[in-house]
Design a binder for these strands. Structure first.
Lengths: 357, 357
DNA sequence: TTGTTCTGCACAATCGATGTAGCAATCTTG
DNA sequence: CAAGATTGCTACATCGATTGTGCAGAACAA
């Protein structure tokens, strides 16, 4: 059994040089694909490649990156993995990065500005070549860090002012969702329980603000009353939403006839509270949720969902990264309304359409 | 406005050396924290650190990694992001890696053996220091690659024979789940529709095999008949499960009274078919799902779920990586049975317990 | 035969950080 | 006051791959 040259175990071009009798530069050329332009004989190159394969050689990307000032890494930061929307982001991001022959690095930052900054700096220290900033709490602070080291980056899902952004068209999506909620909710003259309430998210958050704006606008036009009192947007934390909805129900003496829930995060919290209620409580409620989850669309009360076009969000982000965009334009992508199975006239079609990517 | 020294924009220890008048070695020592042992005057070190901070210096990890033969990266490969179980893995993995001051790299491989191999090789070429292999289709092939370069790794969720593994106790979990399904399902003498069916997963997959074994065992003991004919495990693909369950229902003339669904992936597929049926169809069915999803536990038919202990899976994986384990032991972690809200006698407690991490 | 052009490859510098070896200056000790 | 110890710092080689430069030898032309 022939032992590896170094105790380490990782084969380098020097090892291969030794075993083929060629010089390290020739080996490098043969393995990096530049051998043709470096006038290496084909037979030499092939022989080296064969031996490299045989010895299980893999390029040391740290060394290559150091020399070439390119790492082959593309970074993405996002608030959390534990959410379908962001998980879909990761999945699609990875696919895009792979087609470009690079390596994806996805890190979550838990909506903590300090963690966001630390993470971006870490990624920079690994010399990522570009960065997608998804749902950052303070995109501009991250832009500053990136700009300082000349790193191409795009904001996704939440816009910033110092770099291009690709976001969901929150206003339009929320308008559609609110409209659909109003259309579907049981008619009631009760000026308290008979109205739709907005739950979850945070008012300082751009997306939430836009959705609230749409919610208010649609209610003002279609119902004629102000929605100011119907907004409960404290945080994205499920537990906070659970508390909010509980207090709401206690205040108004039961479930309202409609809820606009700002994300699946909040929806989880709401469900947590719902689970304490008897099944009959839900006979008369319609829920809209800004975000999509295939399971959530199958509850035992109608759930209207908005599915953001993750494919296009990521696609456009890459287009911007790779194109030569200047300034900080903000591209808005129209989301899609998913009507509830339980209300659908043609359920099979709707649902199938939702599921097939 | 003072311009950066190099066109690049990234400050190096040489830039800082120049601006402090110290040598690069001194700067390195001051910034890497080894200055005390290298007898650098405290005032010198502090001054260097101040300047580095001011100039926004970050260590070039490629260079450091190359020199120290340690990258600061910890890798994890998993089948997909788009799934609660794996998403939870990512989240918890990241937390563990962070407490160790390292950088997590999570990449999905879509259950494709070739992609798994390529990805592991890529991660190796970036010199990751250890690797968690989650749910790989061919763990041993990956082990071979890792062993060749002396890389510490652990299998998680699916066991291998060439490296230590930490997995869910599939047999026990599936026993509990099957038992609970039998207990909850509507009594029926129908020898076809009145029986529980097993949907999803793949028989070549260890986890599926174990769960099927448990399913059969429990049914044999508690019902006295063989479950051989009740198994439909072709693939983890949602669409395949959709087809399977549709064909099953067509064959037996309606929904069975109970389903054991092998994962939330398959559950998605099943729902896709369910959505084509009228709501009344579900009055008489109990579903058990091996995997947990807070939304899935709130369907309009009872859903019993098994929640794997992701925290412990990851924790033990790290314990193994960091300890000095030899051989390929397989640690089994007991999962938790989550009774359906709609069947629970004390729903609030159960559900709250589920949601609070 | 001498000069020119290709071929095919090797040498050596380089990327940024680290760490060993070592040098000069200062301090200690007998 | 000289030998030895200590302090504070610098020079240089190194990690592995890439790449500009250069140098033999072959092929070819004059």
């Amino acid at each position: 059994m022939k032992k590896k040259q170094k105790s380490n175990g990782k084969t380098t071009i020097y090892d291969i040089a030794r075993s083929t009798g060629a010089s390290p530069s020739t080996v490098s050329a043969a393995l990096s694909g530049t051998w043709r332009s470096r006038r290496i004989k084909e037979s030499t190159a092939l022989e080296i490649q064969r031996l490299a394969e045989e010895q299980g050689y893999t390029t040391n990307m740290q060394a290559r990156g150091l020399r070439k000032a390119r790492s082959g890494l593309v970074g993405m930061v996002l608030p959390a993995h534990f959410n379908r929307f962001y998980a879909a982001m990761s999945q699609i991001f990875e696919a895009h990065v792979r087609t470009r022959g690079m390596c994806p690095v996805v890190v979550s930052t838990l909506r903590e500005p300090e963690e966001e900054r630390r993470t971006v700096e870490t990624l920079i220290s690994y010399a990522i070549e570009s960065l997608l900033i998804v749902g950052a709490t303070d995109p501009d602070a991250l832009s500053d860090i990136c700009t300082a080291v000349n790193l191409k980056h795009v904001n996704v899902d939440l816009p910033g002012t110092k770099a291009p952004s690709v976001i969901s068209d929150n206003y339009s999506g929320a308008r559609q969702l609110t409209h659909e909620i109003l259309k579907s909710m049981p008619k009631s003259d009760d000026p308290v329980r008979g109205r739709p309430y907005f739950i979850g998210g945070a008012t300082w958050d751009f997306a939430t603000a836009e959705r609230i704006r749409a919610f208010k606008d649609v209610i003002a036009t279609e119902c004629g009353y102000s929605a100011d009192e119907l907004i409960l947007a404290q945080s994205y934390d499920p537990d906070a939403s659970a508390t909010d909805v509980r207090m709401l129900c206690e205040r108004i003496g039961g479930l309202p006839t409609a809820l606009f829930i700002n994300s699946t995060f909040s929806f989880e919290g709401v469900l947590k509270y719902f689970s304490t209620l008897p099944a009959e409580a839900f006979n008369n409620i319609v829920v809209g949720c800004y975000d999509y989850d295939p399971f959530a669309s199958f509850m035992h009360f109608p759930v209207i969902m908005v599915r953001q076009n993750v494919d296009r969000l990521v696609e456009e982000a890459f287009r911007i990264i790779e194109g030569d965009v200047d300034g900080a334009p903000c591209l808005q992508i129209e989301p899609e309304l998913i009507r509830p199975r339980t209300l659908s006239t043609s359920p099979s079609e709707t649902f199938h359409h939702n599921m097939t990517r």
